[in-house]
Design a protein around this nucleic acid. Sequence first.
DNA 1: TTAACGATTGCACAATTGTGCATTTACAGC
DNA 2: GCTGTAAATGCACAATTGTGCAATCGTTAA
Lengths: 318, 318
Amino acid sequence: MRASQAMTNDTRIRAAWLYHVGGLSQDEVGQRLGLSRFKVLRLLSDARAAGEVVISLDHRNTATLALAEAVRDKFNLNDALVAPDPGAGNAHAARCAVGMVAAHWLSVLAASGPMTLGVGWGRTLSAMANALTGLHNPELRIVSLMGAMVRTGLEGPIDVCARIAAEVGGQALFLPVPFLADTPEDAALMLRQRLVREALEAARSASHMIVSVGEGGPTALLTKSDVVDAADLAALDAANVVADTTGKFFLADGTLAPVDLNDRTPAIGLEDMVRAEVTLLAADVSKALATRAVLRAGFVDRLILDEGLAITLMEDRA
Amino acid sequence: MRASQAMTNDTRIRAAWLYHVGGLSQDEVGQRLGLSRFKVLRLLSDARAAGEVVISLDHRNTATLALAEAVRDKFNLNDALVAPDPGAGNAHAARCAVGMVAAHWLSVLAASGPMTLGVGWGRTLSAMANALTGLHNPELRIVSLMGAMVRTGLEGPIDVCARIAAEVGGQALFLPVPFLADTPEDAALMLRQRLVREALEAARSASHMIVSVGEGGPTALLTKSDVVDAADLAALDAANVVADTTGKFFLADGTLAPVDLNDRTPAIGLEDMVRAEVTLLAADVSKALATRAVLRAGFVDRLILDEGLAITLMEDRA
DNA sequence: TTAACGATTGCACAATTGTGCATTTACAGC
DNA sequence: GCTGTAAATGCACAATTGTGCAATCGTTAA
């Protein structure tokens, strides 16, 4: 089964070359490889899913450049990047768009020399990992800024971290603690463990951090996953929490919410983020409220967002 | 017309995002942008041609990795990379494949820090420039290793050099002389010009050089273009020239051909290439003879070639 | 103003690609 | 061996994409 695994891996890559580079039709690819057209069809979409085929596009156009400048000035950022509207009205497409631009930006940033890069987790960061290509820097250290989840898909902190590291050929460091501890004391205890401290030191020394923003409400990933239980959700709701990043929960005015959850997530602290150059990824208009809240917290240096969200953020004068 | 140029540029990029990222059909893209489906169709292929959309694929598979190792050992190279067979039996597809792998390799090599990179010209190098993406290094200096041609398309030395520089955001340096001078004395005189010497110095200081191999015969680009006239072609033929790189013409055994053309091409010398780390790009089986000749000359450190050519080179025991 | 030319646009049709579903295959547990 | 279940396969059909060619537009030259 190891050999068969390698075999399908090979044929997938071979099919992708025949199709994308050679310009053969799926039918012709099938004939040449002795497969049915349908199998080739699936092979090709697998290859895209596996990140063996990556398409990257230029995002510079007059509209997005103007918006980026406006957003940067309005929120006092060092830099802002706006991904063109991908059209499909769903959040997934927006995440792909933002991920694409973020991946491109990262491959510029992290191209040269040794560097420690702190990363959060989430669907947008996962999209960035997908779009990452051409960046190879063995001296890059990717460190997770927060704890792990038990039921983790491709979007969990460990996976995002590992996938970026695998693509760039660098080193991945995880924070070997759960995302959420039962009590503040437990969280503190975990952070005192020697092995945890090592990872945490690395995270703290990161010169750059890339995090995404989570919003409250029923569509939030935190709500949908099993990380936070009903009681905690109710507490978040009662305190009017509208945003979270890196295990910190925020009110609309950008202050830390007075909930004990903020002491129960073993992760780096806000003070560490203030020190580093922080890039926030925000995709889809549904993140408008949350994004504004996190920006008000004042630790974000660079914002990468999609056109729709940028327009929404610019529209309201609040 | 400047504004309209920018406008179409914008719509092209916008269409590409809607199609590739948003997953809309060409029809839907057309509706949203107020264009006919056919216009969108053409816009999308323009975007690909303009390098605004780049697809990159993984090339590692067991067959090509094994071949690469075999080629490296047989020809005593530091390194060899083999692009998977793109299937379409034509040389163009082979060049795309080699260009793709070369682009990927280059984006690893030139990611970090200041570097001077010497480049030749040709269709394979042009394909590499097309496939280049994600590499940004303002400290990179791209310098042309040979003179310019008058009737130059997208493959000429100036264009290849400029396109790479534009993509990576680095600096381009040309050798401001014709590819071929009328007499050896004229060539020497040109190389003595101060402005030419400056470029030449830069070329000589290049730590890495990327060149491709030209073959003799009627399909060769040199033959088809108007650079070399009938008398010179006859001389090349009479001397049994089978290969050329960087303005140097070689016999099958890898020695410089005894033709005065070798003294009439103002370019860097072989001794400079021996000093630098030289990567040779060779695409399509038609280059087998020429590739072997250039490899015998002994200045090549790394070979990037396509699977078909690799198989041919490995097959014959000569 | 008109003729002529090249570039652009849209269309009918051809080819390719994608999808839901029925069928087959593989395989673990009994 | 049998059986149930899940994965993989292939198919008919639907949708999308690509192509050659004719119509149109715009521009230059007489």
